[in-house]
Design a protein around this nucleic acid. Structure first.
Length: 135
RNA sequence: GCGGAGGGCCGGACGGCCGCUUGGGCAGCUUCCCUGGGAGCGGCCUGGGAGGAAAGUCCGGACUCCAGGAAGCAACGGCGCCGGGUAACGCCCGGCCGGGGAGACCCGAGGGAAAGCGCCACAGAGAACAGACCGCUCCAAUCUCGGAGCAAGGGUGAAACGGUGGGGUAAGAGCCCACCGCGGGACGGGCGACCGGACCGGCACGGCAAGCCCCGCCGGGAGCAACGCCAAAUAGGGGCCGCAGAUGGGGGGCUUCCCCCCGGCGGCUUGGGUUGGCGGCUCGAGCCUGCCGGCAACGGCGGGCCCAGAUGAAUGGCCGUCGAACGGCGCGCGAGCGCCGGGAACAGAAUCCGGCUUACAGGCCCUCCGCGCAU
């Protein structure tokens, strides 16, 4: 396959309905400009990923995913992206903050292989550390 | 049963919870023109959702745009035994020839070397209208030396101007003869590549075309980021009209004034670039199936089906049960069996098809060959 485009994240927003949470929309980042802007924000490093966060000046919470070619071939990249998307879906509604852009960056091997619960717990603590999140 | 050859197919299964994307249906909300419809948003129900290679991007097409009377020629590139299949191919099928194998089968860039050029290293006496090193024979001579004839034997080499046997001769030689090989070839068979071959010729015409070349056939270029449409905002371009003419720059005239061009301000209009959105975008040389034609590739007819359309790029995440390879232990002469561990190869659509090539844990099926055993 001719791979000329830069690595990308997932598409589509998703709605999570928590038990006692009001329905809240989380938009997925798609524009390169948003990803570039997030680079200037705060960063928290974890074994399975790197989290970036930045105020977006909006009501809503947004999230983006980056898995570059460093992660490996398409199969490995896609798997890493899917796992990042899943921990974001499960964790952000309770631990993320509206008005923020979050970008999760995958890491070689670990993103695809670390136990799922570890990844998820790491995102929780990372969100607490990066500030703006709820307790 | 053991060993081997060819071909086809599959490539984890079942379930639970939670998601993504897309088609359809239902009702709702927002918004725009307002008989009616368009756009958007989420909800519920319901259906679809990666591969045999989706890969490499190597050939062939469809489809777009560009260029160009059609076409042809030249250049360049590709292809190259014959016949068939196909939309087309460098692919596939069936043959032919050559080579390998005991066989099933496998391998072959396989047109032309009497159109021309070029090359044939090393070794060797001599390498392409060849040549005489060691030799052989005769004459002369008999110590060396010389003259003539020969190319059978030795030696070199990838290749040495046919092979074996006999006659012949001073010794030899297709010099003569038989068989084999080689060249030509009436005629016969085949659509053809090609096969057979009466008879003729004493043998002449070495190899390389994957060095150039010649001949035949094919090819205009770029690619879905093609291309078409819509909407914005910033900057800028072209055109038209108006304003100011108190005028900055340049030019002209009948020179305290007037005209033209550039520049200025405002409006209208127009074609591009960028960003975003929509179309292209998935019903197609489609898939399944029956019959018919064909050795086959494949084709025809009938019936049925709708089977991904994402775009920072969906097709998944987690868990449970079952589970192949593999590892360990035990049992058995053995094929194998039992228990425990272990957990699934290569790999992810990007406009769509037909091929090729490459990667791949393991499993299943069919046909054929050889050997062994039984009958």
């Amino acid at each position: 396959m001719l791979m000329v485009k830069p690595p990308r994240g997932p598409v589509g927003g998703f709605v999570v309905s928590g038990e006692q949470m009001p329905k809240q929309k989380i938009v997925t980042l798609r524009k390169r400009a948003d990803f570039v802007a997030a680079r200037g924000g705060r960063k928290v490093n974890r074994p399975g990923f790197l989290l970036q966060a930045r105020r977006n000046g909006l009501e809503e919470m947004r999230v983006g995913f980056t898995c570059s070619k460093k992660l490996g071939d398409a199969v490995r990249r896609n798997r890493a992206k899917r796992r990042l998307r899943e921990i974001a879906r499960l964790t952000l509604p309770k631990h993320g903050a509206p008005g923020f852009d979050y970008v999760l960056i995958g890491k070689k091997d670990t993103t695809a292989e670390l136990p799922f619960e570890t990844l998820r717990a790491d995102l929780e603590t990372a969100l607490g550390e990066i500030g703006g999140g709820r307790q």
